[in-house]
Design a protein around this nucleic acid. Structure first.
Lengths: 218, 218
DNA sequence: GTAATAATAGACCGACCTGTATAAAGTCGC
DNA sequence: GCGACTTTATACAGGTCGGTCTATTATTAC
């Protein structure tokens, strides 16, 4: 009855709700939210359509719940966790994003990024569009935090550019360029260098700490 | 009867075909190709549905014709022409892309890039997906030509990164960041600088000509 | 003017979509 | 075991979609 329920599978209701969401997760992630119908989710989950509409009053609510779950699993569980595992310093972690992307792009069944797909498909201003933009914003904030930890000048600016490289790499990969992540990483390294250098010049305050062994700028 | 007809409006047939394509151009550009139905195009163009199907045997053929027209008008007529008008040197022209994008993003009625939207929506491997990827490839080739004219080292690599910034900027703008083009331009300038510097070091052969007044690296 | 070609309106098909109604069956706490 | 809650199957409503059929009406060339 409550669409914003935490997915604690307490009791029969919670378990059913989870089954629906689980099926929706796979189908939406693979084929997009507009192409996948409610009947398909009902069939895949083994839950009757009426029950589905008893848990989510409209398909849109199911999509919004999917977006939350996707952010929890992909952004947090995969991206953030993978970055943390692969890189030690903030700079390594920033670059590690593209290593993760490379694995992602080469995995079979790569279908692009659902967030970007929804951003393209949905009407600007609609609840789904807004929610998706917010999920993308969370990712950009995360990149911004890494950039700030890396003590670059203008972390927000770097995060914006970084995000565009990430999004562009995803689109390029979806267009067939499977090596997009590698090329994006090279470009990103250049940006990181430039932002870092600028910081060393303009924002000398950032050097009050030894700054963890920073390369002396060429 | 022939879907690949040049759009020379000779005679009644040609004029009718053009009316259909013109309506499809507006509608597809604004709302995407999947959301716009054949009936809507028929109504908007003032051409009966049967006539439409007499000129294009299926909606897919109309979409393919649209992609050609979009490339002709947007890529050539707007992007290339605008770049040529706004920049004199190859480097200025590369950067001018993002100035054009800025105008584009701020124009009311900005609905994102149809090419990217189709790349997201269509099945990988389908004729429409292939054709769209090819149109994007043409843009990247054009960027590569500019990069080569700018005498940077590894023009292809720069073109890839440039393209990702362009695509990422479009996606960011569609997500609501209206200043995406400005931020992308800053990042692009950094990339251009780095690629140019590298070229001066690694590929000394590129300097056999006076290289049109190249800045001495930084 | 006549004949060939083009375009017309509008009904129609089958498939799919979101969402609802209904009446029966299952499951659980107590 | 009883009663409240959940889930089930199935049919249905009302809509859109791509695409076809038919019969009628322009337009154009000769």
């Amino acid at each position: 009855m409550n669409d914003t329920d935490d997915l604690a599978p307490t009791g029969r209701r919670g378990a059913t709700r989870l089954k629906i969401l689980e099926a929706a997760y796979d189908l939406f992630s693979a084929h997009g939210v507009t192409l996948v119908g409610v009947d398909t989710i009902s069939a895949r989950s083994g839950v009757a359509k009426m029950t589905l509409y008893h848990h989510f009053r409209a398909k849109e609510n199911l999509v919004l719940a999917y977006l939350d779950l996707r952010a929890k699993r992909w952004t947090v569980g995969w991206l953030k966790a993978g970055v943390k595992a692969r890189g030690k310093t903030p700079r390594e972690r920033l670059l590690a994003i593209f290593d993760l992307f490379h694995d992602w792009f080469e995995a079979d069944g790569f279908e692009g990024c659902p967030f970007l797909r929804i951003i393209c498909e949905s009407d600007v201003g609609s609840p789904v569009h807004k929610a998706t933009a917010q999920k993308l914003g969370q990712i950009q904030n995360y990149v911004g935090q890494l950039a700030r930890s890396a003590l670059v000048s203008d972390p927000q600016g770097l995060a914006s550019a970084w995000m565009m490289l990430m999004e562009g790499a995803i689109m390029s990969a979806r267009s067939g360029q499977t090596d997009a992540a590698l090329k994006a990483k090279k470009a990103a390294a250049v940006l990181l260098d430039a932002w870092g250098n600028k910081g060393a010049k303009k924002a000398a305050k950032a050097v009050r700490k030894p700054a963890a062994k920073r390369k002396p700028t060429r």
